[in-house]
Every structure is written in C-alpha cells, then in structure tokens.
C-alpha cells in the first residue's frame, strides 16, 4: 500500500533548479533513505513535502489524499511530521512541554477552560501527561521530563525533536540528518530507537543522512539526489554499488 506518492515535484529559485522532477513512492511502513552530496536539494525536498515551499510543479499524495500546495499546519494535520537539520526545539520550555506541544492538535480544550481551570482542563492535561511520558519513555527521556530542553545534551536534543514529531501522531515521519553531530555509539543507539519507533508507532519514515553506516544499516530503500535530479533509487546494495553514486557522492 502506498503511503507517499510524489510525482514530478519541481521548484526553482531564480534560475536554479533546486529540485527537478522528483518522484518517489514510499510504501506503508517502509524506511526510506534520502542521500546525496551537499547542496543536492535534500532539505528542499523536505521543505516541499511539508509545505514550507510551494512547488512549481508536481503533486504530493499522502495516503490517497492530495496535499500538494497546502500549508505546513494543514500538512501536519494530514499526517506528516518532521525534524530539522539544525535542531529547532522550544528552548525555553521543559522537555515534557515540548512533547505536549506535539500533542496539541489531538488533545483539545478551549482557552477559556484553560484559564478558568474547568474540568476538561484537568482531564485533558492528565491524558496529555500520560501520552507524553509514554513517548518520552521510548526515547529514554522520562527522567529529564522537567528540565529545560536547552539544557539537554546534544544527542538527547535530537531525540527529543523526534519525540515531539511523533507526538503529532504522524503517518509519515521525515528525519533531517538525525545522526548529525553524534558519535558512533550515540548513532548506534539512535538506530535502535528508530527501529523501535517503527515497530511501536507503525510509522513510515523518510530520512536524510550522511552517515552511511546508519543508512546502510536501517534503510530498506535508498534514493540518491544530485543537483536536484534523481541519480539512483532502489535497494541499498544496488544503490551503494552503483558506479555513478560512487562517483558523485560516496567516493572511490
């Protein structure tokens, strides 16, 4: 079953074709890797998929629903969540509150109920706390729940970002360089976490990564992008041995 189907997605900035005819089909539950040299347009693809940029051409279909050209908020509500290359946490809020922001749209009560502490406030907050702690436990962050998110060590900040994205209950999770800046043992731990998340939350994942060990280790399929154009697409062993990919990105 197709979770995400992208056809001929293109965008140009001035004369630069940042992404040109990007097409990809991701099946439900798959873990897809998106790799390529710096400036290849990987993050631009993420920005197109999440509505940060409006595509010049092409269409994006998520689980049978056409989400092309919608706003970021609507796309998130449709079921796409993402993390960022440079961490974007809510720095002055606690770890728990960061995750509860992710739960924002699924647990509603009115502002009035919040200010005047009506019963719906207590009921919903309790449920949100339970859900948030559940997610934090998956990432091993439950002990740090009350501390400020900016006081977390780097690796845990990356994890918290994934936790916050997962809290929005997405169908498709986009991870932008989740292992950037991590040491080998942290990367290893992250791989385990990603596998665990897939099992527990039944989520389809598309990730950008430069760490080939991680990509080859967990991705079921790989897409290689170079100068905004598809270079290769398929199973890891085929893609990573493709002479063009080796020439353009991996190095001989």
């Amino acid at each position: 079953m197709e979770m995400l189907s992208v056809k001929n997605l293109s965008i140009s900035f001035g004369g630069l074709h940042a992404v040109d005819s990007f097409s990809i089909t991701i099946n439900k539950g798959e873990l897809y890797g998106l790799i390529g040299p710096n400036g290849a347009g990987k993050t631009t693809v993420f920005n197109l998929l999440t509505g940060v940029y409006k595509p010049d051409m092409g269409q994006v279909i998520l689980d049978g629903e056409n989400i092309t050209g919608r706003s970021t908020i609507e796309i998130n509500k449709a079921g796409v969540a993402r993390t960022f290359q440079n961490i974007r946490l809510f720095k002055n809020m606690s770890v728990l509150d960061n995750v509860k922001c992710g739960l924002h749209n699924d647990n509603k009560y009115s502002t009035f109920a919040g200010i005047f502490r009506l019963p719906s406030y207590f009921k919903t907050e309790k449920r949100m706390n339970e859900q948030a702690y559940e997610i934090l436990e998956v990432f091993g962050l439950e002990k740090e729940a009350k501390i400020l998110s900016s006081n977390l060590p780097y690796g845990k900040q990356r994890k918290l970002e994934i936790a916050r994205a997962l809290a929005t209950n997405p169908k498709l999770l986009l991870l932008d360089e989740p292992a950037a800046g991590m040491n080998p043992s942290e990367t290893e731990e992250l791989m385990e976490t990603i596998n665990l998340v897939r099992k527990q939350y039944d989520v389809t994942i598309l990730l950008i990564e430069h760490d080939m060990k991680l990509v080859a280790g967990i991705c079921e399929k790989i897409f290689v992008l170079n100068f905004g154009i598809e270079l290769a697409n398929g199973l890891p062993q085929d893609v990573l041995n493709n002479p063009e990919v080796i020439k353009a990105y991996l190095g001989e």
Binding site: N76, N105, G114
Partner: peptide, 30 residues
C-alpha cells in the same frame, strides 16, 4: 488569568511560537 493561560494548552502554543515559530508550525500549531 495570565499564569493559568501560560500553564495551559494555549499557553504552550503561545510560548512555542515565541521559541521557534517554524517548529511550532511543523507540529501543527496555528
């Protein structure tokens, strides 16, 4: 009123916008 607002769902959304509006949008906060 302000303290209760800050410690509620809407207050978290407001502070999320302050801390990082791009991330706030990405988790579906209006």
């Amino acid at each position: 009123i302000i303290v209760n607002l800050v410690n509620s769902r809407s207050g978290r959304a407001i502070m999320a916008i302050r801390d990082n509006h791009i991330a706030a949008e990405s988790v579906g906060i209006d």
